[in-house]
């Protein structure tokens, strides 16, 4: 017997669901659908923490993720590095994941390229403004060691230069030497281990950036053991929005005027993207995520409607 429309929807082939999900991601990417982000108080607290530090503060950034979670975590990492460079903080990059070292290189290079276009003539020198001490195996064991003595494990940077030869490493003894720790992590070892073995014993403020799946596991540490958590793309997009509104917008507008491309409307981001290589990956990727969430919600609603219709029919058929 041929199926009616109701049965067709109820027994929908999962390949149709896959098709809708594909379209919900691809179409917003093609047509560049994105929405305004309203930063939440927690994201504002993180921004204020980084922003309130005086220039030259030491910021340790742990890049503990890999290419699998890069699309979700790289936007927030780039936003943080940009913010630190704008504030002229000294950036110390490290990794607890083997591939995190490469993530750090990519992130810092992307941020530096943009800052150099924004502030021509500004020199951002390796060893003075930023350093990458790379990956060490040992998971939380690494944190436990650098808590008391960094040089025990990190005697050289990723290029093999002894840390005593790196100017910005002068005075860095252990975790207590840093003003803030930023942990961008996709799992174990990550932010949780930083709280347990690093930031809490050292008394150094910790900021966490996690995947959306990991974020709920971090909330128990907020606000006493963590300044805040950036959860997934949403958190990254909100942070990007804050950096854009409070730091970059005026600077980029001024630079675009110097380049002979004065912005005609309030939103300078599109012009900055064209002429300064500015990216808002978090905000842009929130478009597809928003549409995909809506598609999932629609499917869940359809699934529940069919469930209740089936249950009512079954009750009617049942002899009383």
């Amino acid at each position: 017997m041929a199926k009616g429309w109701y049965e067709r929807i109820r027994d929908i082939d999962r390949r149709w669901i896959f098709l809708f999900i594909t379209l919900s991601v691809v179409l917003p990417l093609i047509f560049q659908v994105y929405f305004a982000e309203i930063p939440t108080p927690m994201v504002e607290q993180i921004f204020d923490k980084i922003d309130s530090l005086p220039a030259g503060s030491r910021v340790l950034i742990d890049f503990s993720y890999d290419p699998a979670s890069m699309p979700e975590l790289q936007p927030m990492a780039v936003a943080w590095v940009r913010h630190c460079l704008l504030k002229r903080h000294r950036i110390y990059a490290m990794a607890l994941w083997p591939l995190g070292q490469q993530m750090a290189v990519d992130t810092i290079n992307e941020a530096i390229d943009f800052i150099k276009k924004l502030e021509p003539g500004r020199e951002i020198v390796y060893g003075i403004d930023y350093v990458n001490i790379g990956y060490k195996s040992g998971q939380q064991g690494v944190i436990k060691v650098v808590l008391t003595n960094l040089e025990t494990l990190y005697s050289t940077d990723i290029n093999g230069a002894h840390i005593s030869k790196i100017p910005m490493m002068s005075g860095v003894v252990n975790l207590k030497s840093f003003d803030v720790i930023i942990s961008v992590s996709a799992g174990y070892p990550g932010s949780k281990e930083w709280v347990q073995f690093g930031s809490d014993p050292a008394g150094v403020p910790l900021v966490s950036g996690s995947t959306a799946v990991q974020a709920p596991l971090m909330y128990p540490y907020y606000p006493r053991q963590m300044v805040g958590v950036l959860g997934g793309l949403k958190g990254a997009a909100e942070y990007e929005q804050l950096v854009y509104e409070r730091k970059l917008k005026a600077l980029m507008g001024k630079r675009l005027v110097e380049l002979g491309h004065p912005p005609r409307d309030a939103d300078v981001a599109p012009l900055a993207e064209q002429y300064l290589g500015y990216t808002q990956l978090g905000i842009k990727r929130m478009g597809p995520q928003t549409v995909a969430h809506l598609v999932i919600i629609i499917f869940v609603v359809i699934g529940n409607v069919t469930f209740f219709i089936d249950r009512r029919r079954a009750r009617k058929r049942r002899p009383s």
Binding site: I12, R14, I17, F18, F20, I21, V25, D66, P67, A68, S69, M70, P71, A292, V295, I296, F299, V300, I302, G303, N304, F307, F308
Partner: peptide, 28 residues
């Protein structure tokens, strides 16, 4: 090779989440 393959594997989660939500998320 490695980066696109890893991202692809991670992205497949979206499909499984959508399919599983449709079939299992019922107000029973």
């Amino acid at each position: 090779i490695f980066t696109p393959l890893s991202s692809t594997m991670f992205a497949l989660l979206a499909y499984y989440v959508a399919s599983a939500s449709y079939r299992a998320f019922r107000a029973k």
